[in-house]
Simulated scan of single mutants.
Amino acid sequence: MALVTAGTVVLDCAEPERLAVIYAELLGARQTEASANRIEIRAADGVRMAFRRDASATPPSRPRTENLLQAHLDFVAADLDAAERRVVALGGRPVEAGNTPGPYEERGFCDPAGHSFTLRRGTPPTAPEQG
């Protein structure tokens, strides 16, 4: 039996409202909780993320080595080109130019607060059965 269960991935940032909108759109999620300093979203597949206000949050400096990675997120997309266009339209920026073709193709990005994430080619998992 597991000692703990997965909770919520929480990203500290200066503008939680902005990040909540971006990640909600990318994940097809809906807002489940909100306060002055925290917004939580939940996707249909059960993934939960929260964005906590921290006016002194220091963005990770990826790809530079100082203050490198505080967290890294991986997302799966069937159509990497469409996903990349949407990420950029929502304010994300590419951080790795090298695309590796094939079944493990991935592309690196940072959200507007500097958190890094990767889009990987693949088929998104189906939502778990409810019941």
Score class of each variant (00 low, 15 high):
residue 60 P to E: 14
residue 66 E to W: 00
residue 25 E to I: 11
residue 114 G to F: 00
residue 128 P to G: 01
residue 110 C to H: 06
residue 61 S to V: 03
residue 123 T to C: 01
residue 131 G to Q: 11
residue 96 E to L: 15
residue 75 F to V: 11
residue 55 A to T: 06
residue 51 F to Y: 01
residue 49 M to G: 07
residue 11 L to V: 07
residue 34 A to Q: 15
residue 6 A to L: 14
residue 115 H to Q: 09
residue 117 F to H: 07
residue 29 A to Y: 03
residue 105 E to L: 04
residue 90 L to K: 13
residue 14 A to C: 09
residue 26 L to S: 14
residue 121 R to P: 00
residue 71 A to P: 10
residue 75 F to P: 12
residue 1 M to K: 04
residue 23 Y to V: 06
residue 65 T to H: 12
residue 21 V to R: 04
residue 120 R to Y: 01
residue 107 R to H: 09
residue 3 L to P: 03
residue 37 N to P: 02
residue 53 R to N: 06
residue 49 M to P: 12
residue 40 E to K: 07
residue 72 H to D: 15
residue 101 P to I: 03
residue 58 T to D: 12
residue 56 S to K: 08
residue 96 E to W: 13
residue 4 V to C: 04
residue 83 A to G: 12
residue 83 A to Y: 07
residue 72 H to W: 07
residue 115 H to L: 07
residue 8 T to Y: 00
residue 61 S to Y: 01
residue 78 A to K: 11
residue 91 G to V: 04
residue 35 S to A: 02
residue 36 A to S: 13
residue 119 L to Q: 10
residue 112 P to M: 13
residue 35 S to H: 01
residue 56 S to R: 10
residue 26 L to P: 12
residue 4 V to K: 02
residue 79 D to F: 03
residue 63 P to G: 09
residue 126 T to S: 12
residue 106 E to C: 11
residue 105 E to P: 04
residue 33 E to P: 08
residue 120 R to C: 04
residue 72 H to E: 15
residue 88 V to L: 15
residue 107 R to K: 14
residue 126 T to I: 14
residue 103 P to H: 01
residue 31 Q to G: 02
residue 129 E to H: 10
residue 39 I to G: 05
residue 88 V to D: 14
residue 6 A to I: 10
residue 64 R to Q: 14
residue 61 S to W: 00
residue 22 I to W: 04
residue 45 D to L: 08
residue 33 E to Q: 06
residue 70 Q to H: 14
residue 99 N to C: 05
residue 113 A to H: 01
residue 1 M to Y: 00
residue 2 A to E: 10
residue 60 P to A: 15
residue 18 R to S: 10
residue 7 G to D: 11
residue 74 D to A: 14
residue 45 D to V: 04
residue 79 D to W: 01
residue 89 A to V: 13
residue 18 R to T: 07
residue 20 A to P: 12
residue 67 N to H: 09
residue 95 V to H: 10
residue 102 G to Y: 01
residue 126 T to Q: 14
residue 122 G to I: 01
residue 29 A to W: 05
residue 118 T to W: 07
residue 128 P to Y: 00
residue 93 R to G: 14
residue 106 E to A: 08
residue 89 A to F: 03
residue 27 L to H: 01
residue 53 R to K: 14
residue 111 D to N: 15
residue 52 R to L: 09
residue 47 V to P: 07
residue 33 E to Y: 12
residue 23 Y to M: 12
residue 93 R to L: 13
residue 118 T to H: 09
residue 60 P to H: 09
residue 82 A to I: 00
residue 83 A to P: 13
residue 97 A to V: 02
residue 34 A to N: 09
residue 116 S to C: 10
residue 1 M to A: 08
residue 24 A to I: 03
residue 36 A to Y: 00
residue 114 G to D: 10
residue 17 E to G: 04
residue 31 Q to T: 07
residue 15 E to R: 10
residue 121 R to Q: 09
residue 122 G to Q: 05
residue 84 E to V: 13
residue 68 L to V: 08
residue 125 P to L: 10
residue 58 T to Y: 00
residue 27 L to G: 13
residue 48 R to T: 11
residue 71 A to I: 13
residue 128 P to D: 05
residue 77 A to N: 12
residue 1 M to P: 03
residue 31 Q to K: 15
residue 73 L to W: 07
residue 57 A to I: 00
residue 117 F to Y: 06
residue 111 D to Q: 11
residue 57 A to R: 00
residue 85 R to I: 11
residue 120 R to D: 03
residue 86 R to G: 15
residue 25 E to H: 13
residue 99 N to Y: 04
residue 106 E to Y: 02
residue 102 G to R: 03
residue 13 C to Q: 05
residue 38 R to Y: 13
residue 9 V to L: 15
